[in-house]
Design a protein around this nucleic acid. Sequence first.
DNA 1: CTATGTGAATTTATTCACAGCA
DNA 2: TGCTGTGAATAAATTCACATAG
Lengths: 206, 206
Amino acid sequence: MRYYRISDETVRRLPIYLRGLLFLAEQGQQNISSRKLADFLGVNSWQIRKDFSYFGGFGTRGVGYSIEKLIKQINKILKLDVGHKAALVGVGNLGSAVLIYPGFRIYGFDIAAAFDANPKKVGRKIRNITIEDISNLQTLKKRKINLAIIAVPRDAAQQTADALIKAGVKGILNFSPHYIAVPKKVKVITIDIAMDLARLPYYMPT
Amino acid sequence: MRYYRISDETVRRLPIYLRGLLFLAEQGQQNISSRKLADFLGVNSWQIRKDFSYFGGFGTRGVGYSIEKLIKQINKILKLDVGHKAALVGVGNLGSAVLIYPGFRIYGFDIAAAFDANPKKVGRKIRNITIEDISNLQTLKKRKINLAIIAVPRDAAQQTADALIKAGVKGILNFSPHYIAVPKKVKVITIDIAMDLARLPYYMPT
DNA sequence: CTATGTGAATTTATTCACAGCA
DNA sequence: TGCTGTGAATAAATTCACATAG
């Protein structure tokens, strides 16, 4: 059991493994081999073994890996074991969908606040979240929210990020189709759904 | 001007470049250096030059790249120059947001049809799209739609994909948090927004 | 003198192949 | 015998450094 630096590529794959393992645990399964897990997730078995070996020693030769142990360990590595509160900024079509999206739960996330610049939306309630005015962003630090999801129009993305960082946010999931400049200590992950669609035709036969 | 095989990593970056170049073209700019473009997009200049060199010869030494030429060329490589019709399957919260999302336009996409399994939703109109019953999927081939976006619940993802492929779909953008098995000739790109959020805490200071 | 284009060097990631443990 | 864990081999991507063209 050795501890290497875990590469970004491995970190990108860990949530995939986690998702599958949680599913299997739900089904009551206890152990799984790298081969079976690989088939289930659509990846390679040696990739899984290699990735797990970076923080490894969780498998039993001849048997496979303990699903429960792996879930615990991956959660710990990804720092998901502590639970995180996130804020949503921009309650438009995409933002509303994100606010309602149930899939964050399994990774321990709770979207605990929502903000919008439009006064007409402020005060409205979605699920059990009341939309607040964007000027309330500064309260995030007090509320121990250091994660945010940006779903504002492109032109407002940078200033929203600036305000969030001022409010103590350390991680941003950005849905706006624009580059956001941030200090090095802040991590931004961008999802541009149109951009992902744009890669498809390249791989399709003509 | 040589033609290499363009790597997957480069293909992943091309839409980023394209997005930025379209923005700059909109502003009336004609040329841009790799350095300036890099700063604008938050990437490295040598990465841009290297990527462009794979299909290159579009720059002028001392001046930079012609924005218009680059846009044309990237569109051509990504096969976006022909325009594509896409179908949406699953008009829930996320699906509705995707259906309304304006960002597909710049890459030449047109979401031309929407399907849902819920009879209550069938017949409803969103924007100018009337939601059809899932059993109509087979009409896609006739309608020359060979791209699809899956936004159905996890349990329905695989069967939806199967039906789409049967209907002649060659590329799938999958929002369902589950692996989808497809024939090799079909390309799937998966977006799992919760999974992307799950990578953030790892990079955040504790 | 500026900025491209590209070989070469380096770093990083993937794949293989198999020793070794349960 | 089955499956992990990991060095070694291979492949791929990034970064550098600079010759070269405008």
